[in-house]
Write a protein that binds this DNA or RNA. Sequence first.
DNA 1: GTTCACATGTAACAGGTTACATGATTGG
DNA 2: CCAATCATGTAACCTGTTACATGTGAAC
Lengths: 184, 184
Amino acid sequence: MNVRTLCLGILNFEEATGYEIKKLSVEGRFSHFIDASFGSIYPALTRLCDEGLVNVRVEQKDGKPARKVYSITETGRAEFVASLNKAPGPDKIKSEFLFLILCSEFMDAERIKTAIDDRIAWLDREIEKMNEFRLDCEHTGSQFAIGYGTALYEAARDYLKTNRAVAIANANNTQMPDAAELTL
Amino acid sequence: MNVRTLCLGILNFEEATGYEIKKLSVEGRFSHFIDASFGSIYPALTRLCDEGLVNVRVEQKDGKPARKVYSITETGRAEFVASLNKAPGPDKIKSEFLFLILCSEFMDAERIKTAIDDRIAWLDREIEKMNEFRLDCEHTGSQFAIGYGTALYEAARDYLKTNRAVAIANANNTQMPDAAELTL
DNA sequence: GTTCACATGTAACAGGTTACATGATTGG
DNA sequence: CCAATCATGTAACCTGTTACATGTGAAC
């Protein structure tokens, strides 16, 4: 899914500025399955405007920088809803972390330990964030998506906690007698 | 992680052709966290060769098309192992599926039902594939990565199975009395 | 006074995908 | 004979990232 569709989809829920769309997809409640930068959002918004799928309104509040609030048009809404009828492509996961673990035999134990513990800590933080998002958010679809993310992150964290020792035992400088077996 | 590093990493385990690297990362045991196409693999391999990080050998077996088998050099090995010392970037998940579910209130129940059931079926197939990969594969690192993938996919499948009704009840044309609550 | 959050935008660049072009062998 | 699998490669294109450029007001 490209940034254009992402913007259209978010504007289909509520009007927003480019800045808000970015926050939502990088720090906000969609951040576990969406990513976008200013450099792609702003041009996308301009293009959607040119195509008549969204409208802009400039808001100038006293004591605040000017903001461009985008809202979806009927044409935009129609195009977006139509796009929902196409089957979604497969999820794409890119994990440098897993690739690192894959190569554990070329690293030393300390390095792997750090990598895994950092990851567990990161997952814990993300899970906590998502729990807050879910409590803050009334929207059923968002709650479903957040719950899905939480379930995956918890599974990842639990797997890492359970099998941490196996990965560490696989390091190049360990003489661990018998690495425990993977717990699945 | 770019395709260049991916190729180097795979060649660090064993020599391979471009074709094999692609199979491994698209259909093989790394496919759940890696993706690469011919259009990026072949140029990357050529470049690695130019840089002296890998060597090529052309194999001409009777009755089979010529193949270029790449193997890592000592320089390549050193560079790759050094690159493992950098902290891995965060995992990136892009999910058109979750975005679709997020928008369930703009779709009809039938559409959501199909999307979820298709996804559950796909996850089941992937999980089965990964179980086979794990049994076929002796390499500890790979087993760890496959186990991680399996854990995530199972969590996703279970979440979808458990909360399927919630998403469907959220469709635009349902008059479900009370959507069951999300089970977390 | 400096850092943070808000706010928009562009240009160069990197990276990768898609489609095309080619061709042998095997199995149904 | 046709489809699938093995096998390599290029060129046009698309998409998105990074870094830069600019500015305000609030809080500390």
